[in-house]
Design a protein around this nucleic acid. Structure first.
Lengths: 137, 137
DNA sequence: ATTGACTCCGTACCATACTACGGGGCTTAT
DNA sequence: ATAAGCCCCGTAGTATGGTACGGAGTCAAT
């Protein structure tokens, strides 16, 4: 449970200091504790959260969606049903993404193999075969 | 090979007309043929391309990356090596995405099961277990 | 032939997600 | 104790990816 200053966190995670402050402002990150100096201090859980945010963005989630994912927790039996509902919804979404990415994956593999076989040139975009793979409609 | 007008295309694909013009401007979509009126006319391949663009965005690719994916084609033996190289790079990228999404998937499944078992409430964010799943570092 | 719906174009505006700036305070090493 | 290198804050600017506006031409049905 070491205390990290903004700059250290930014460097470790690979974002910059302003982004960190921005995430705090939009409540994607909790307010960190401050010492007498007024400096922010972060812990390992914060780092974890930031790593997740960073990667989730690359996976196509908006900051709003990421906030929702991070908010999925059982806080009382009252919200348990909500959490379940929301999670199931997200799950479906994610499964579709996995499927579509797999389609793109297989088209790319095919394309790479064609390159190996000295295939003839074409005007068409091979990647559009993904559409015929039926998942993306 | 029906000819579709902008409005029809927009409706079919679920984007709006201005977006279509925007894609043309940034060269993500080719210039469509025009009739005497000056109206744009699109065909089924254009629709396919637009569907792909739409979904690829949702999968976390930027318009620039989508343009690259669409540009992956063997145009001559000269570019064949390039295409292979680029495709392999994209492939790696996509495989990582699939992996990370699978991790998120399994955490969500776990969470849903906890909801069913009337688990106790927690302050932590279950989704952060994804980080421990080792893929996201 | 005229009305309503659609299209044209350029330009301006918008939301999201940062990123930079600038004047000041804190901290740490010399 | 002083200077380099952090950090503070508010505010403004940027890039990406659209979205809206408005005046004019086109099309299709009555």
């Amino acid at each position: 449970m070491i205390d990290y200053k903004v700059g250290e966190v930014a460097k470790k995670v690979g974002i910059n200091v302003e982004t960190l402050r921005y995430y705090e402002k939009i409540k994607l990150m909790p307010k960190p504790k401050r010492k007498e100096s007024g400096y922010r201090y972060y812990d390992d859980l914060d780092l974890k959260r930031l790593h997740f945010i960073k990667r989730a963005k690359e996976l196509g989630f908006s900051l709003k969606e990421i906030k929702e994912l991070l908010g999925l927790k059982i806080e009382s039996t009252a919200t348990c049903g909500d959490v379940k509902h929301l999670s199931e919804h997200k799950l479906e979404d994610i499964r579709k993404k996995i499927n579509d990415l797999k389609n793109i994956e297989s088209v790319l593999i095919k394309l790479i193999n064609q390159c190996l076989c000295e295939a003839v040139s074409t005007d068409e975009c091979p990647i559009l075969e993904v559409i015929d793979s039926d998942i993306i409609e």
